[in-house]
């Protein structure tokens, strides 16, 4: 009987201290939790909700239109152009960034001298303001006084109004995008190369794979596979989110030749004020990003389970 009473008392004290720990947890994490709710979760839900309405920014009324925004999006010539252009841009930026990043990483790692210097030089664009550098690129690509046309004219290559021609505008944007992301891919590959144990190269030497290409084929490239998949996803995510260069250099032009997903989102939501429509674009963008992120999670998981 006495023991029973004691255990009742004890249980109460346990609940109280458990409560104290929970209280501490929520006091510490509370501000962040509330803010994540207010600034991420609720806005995310709001985007989903707005995408099903015909709301115009600033309008007093709106009505539910279901999936109408999505159906008209896919019927919209401009949006289809945006989707297509984004896909083309991604397909140009991602392979070139990966191939260049990997080649440069192998080249830098193949020697001992000036490693840090080369790494720094190639990484520099990744951390500078793309807005400011886009303005510089505009000067470089200027049809008459730009360096590009001056040099091309001098050595007999064709010159063009690069940013005003439908044929060249996307490739040029892709070059700028590659220029910016290259450094990221490079340092990620360099980190991957550093992580390959010397033992593997020694084993390959003993097994007779001692040529440069053999070592590459037998040891380096297979070991880099997980890193490569990872770089692929990171660079793809960044390419899908291209905005600054479109906004500053082309505003989607000429025609709709360089309209991309985020620029379309920005224009529909904030310039044309067709907010419901813009929200639908945001939803599609989100779906793409989440799909890529899920792929990334699987890559990371398989990587950690491997190591």
């Amino acid at each position: 009987m006495k023991a029973q009473q004691a255990s009742v008392v004890d249980r109460r004290s346990r609940v109280e201290t458990g409560f104290a720990e929970t209280l501490a947890g929520y006091t510490l994490a509370g501000p962040a939790l509330v803010l994540i709710f207010a600034l991420f979760i609720l806005p995310g839900a709001a985007v989903l909700a707005i995408a099903t309405t015909d709301w115009h920014l600033g309008a007093k009324t709106l009505s539910f239109v279901g999936a109408a925004n999505f159906t008209s999006l896919f019927a919209d010539r401009v949006f289809r152009a945006a989707l297509f252009n984004t896909a083309v841009y991604v397909l140009m930026v991602v392979p070139s960034t990966l191939v260049l990043g990997l080649s440069l990483a192998l080249l830098i790692e193949s020697g001992k001298s000036l490693r840090a210097f080369y790494r720094a030089v190639h990484f520099l664009p990744f951390m500078t303001s793309l807005a400011a550098m886009a303005i510089v690129w505009e000067a470089l690509l200027h049809p008459t006084i730009g360096l590009v046309n001056q040099v091309f004219g001098l050595i007999g290559l064709p010159t063009a109004n690069w940013l005003r021609s439908e044929a060249t505008v996307l490739p040029i944007l892709a070059i700028i995008g590659t220029w910016q992301s290259l450094g990221l891919a490079l340092v990620l590959f360099l980190a991957g190369l550093k992580a390959i144990p010397q033992d593997l190269y020694d084993a390959a030497d003993i097994d007779g794979a001692d040529g440069v290409l053999d070592r590459l084929r037998v040891v380096t490239l297979p070991s880099l596979a997980p890193v490569s998949l990872f770089v692929l996803i990171v660079v793809t995510l960044r390419a899908f989110a291209a905005f600054d260069i479109v906004q500053i250099l082309t505003r989607g032009g000429p025609g709709d030749a360089s309209v991309m997903l985020l620029y379309a989102l920005y224009r529909e939501s904030f310039e044309y004020l067709t907010t419901g429509y813009g929200a639908a674009i945001a939803v599609i963008f989100l779906v793409i990003v989440i799909a890529l992120a899920m792929l990334q999670t699987r890559v990371v998981n398989s990587r950690t389970s491997r190591s």
Binding site: A6, D10, R11, S13, R14, E16, G18
Partner: peptide, 17 residues
């Protein structure tokens, strides 16, 4: 750590809480 049940006394004083 918190015990599930039982008490601890230090110098004759219960310190559980």
């Amino acid at each position: 750590e918190q015990q599930d049940c039982g008490t601890i006394e230090v110098a004759g004083v219960k310190v559980d809480r």
